[in-house]
Design a binder for these strands. Structure first.
Lengths: 157, 157
DNA sequence: CGCAATTAGATTGCGCGCAACTCAATGGCC
DNA sequence: GGCCATTGAGTTGCGCGCAATCTAATTGCG
């Protein structure tokens, strides 16, 4: 019953990591089509979602919400600023920090984005409960993987 | 009970796509650490997995297994060839096709890759049954998303 | 046969995602 | 107060992932 040979593990392994990868790219592909009208990429859309929900945020906080660092966010935010959706301004009481503020245009875009989730949900064909269950599993998986990475890092040092 | 407002949908939406994205990146991060010893990136590892299982394949077939096109595979395979793990040679009976053949060194790498899946499985902390169930859900999701994308494409034309 | 349509790869361009590094501002510690 | 470690952004470099375009080989069809 238990998968014993290394080859069995090799194939099982391919399936889980591969399935996850494929699903992620399939999602990305559907988002790309739907977001084209808004002129946003998927990561840019995620940034706008956070800003719509929380308002003005420093780059650091934005990165914590999205698990992204400045290496990814800096050029992305520069593009959003170029598109007129956000403004970046140095914080007054901490010159190291940069506040990202949605412009009027950026806030207005939210109205046009309202139907995006419904179209995505329709594309999945999953009912909300099923999505929630899947989401919970994925979050547990991420948590475990992050913990393992942290352990590996400390044991390495 | 049913989530009705557009804002509820916005947040639900963020959670599923975001969770998937996060899990995918977390996986990638763990793989990166483990594969560093082998000198492979994660996509390169996937290519080698396919070659180990199926032997010499044309680029086209490789792309079908991995859902990748030549725009991604061509430079990746060039790097694998540079690393001495594969050779690329024009097919004799169809000059358009390029056969990708693992070298001796490429085949030898399989031995060193044998313990990778076990380490990954350990990092997830999930038992095999749970992984299989999750994988099945993800595959259904991918299938639905692909179908939706195809429908959108045809209705657009 | 001859020519158009199709097919396989390769190339280019762009946007992440992340590691490694630089720089300026801040905080802590003596 | 002065010095050094830490912190927040930005930059660079590299490898995908994918759309768009190009070239060459093959197929199909009159």
């Amino acid at each position: 019953m238990t998968p014993s040979s290394a080859d069995d593990w090799l194939r099982l392994d391919q399936q889980i990591c591969f399935s996850l990868n494929a699903a992620s790219r399939a999602f990305n592909s559907v988002y790309r089509v739907i977001l084209k009208d808004l002129g946003l990429t998927y990561p840019q859309y995620l940034v706008m979602l956070v800003l719509w929900e929380h308002g003005t945020l420093p780059v650091k906080k934005l990165g914590e919400h999205l698990r992204l660092d400045s290496g990814t966010l800096s050029p992305l935010l520069k593009r959003l600023e170029g598109a007129g959706l956000v403004r970046r301004e140095r914080s007054a009481h901490d010159e190291r920090s940069v506040e990202v503020r949605p412009t009027e245009e950026g806030l207005a875009l939210r109205e046009r984005a309202r139907e995006v989730p419904r179209r995505i949900a329709a594309a999945t064909g999953f009912d909300p409960a099923r999505i929630q269950s899947l989401r919970a599993d994925l979050d547990r998986l991420t948590e475990a993987l992050d913990a393992a990475a942290a352990t590996a890092a400390t044991s390495e040092a």
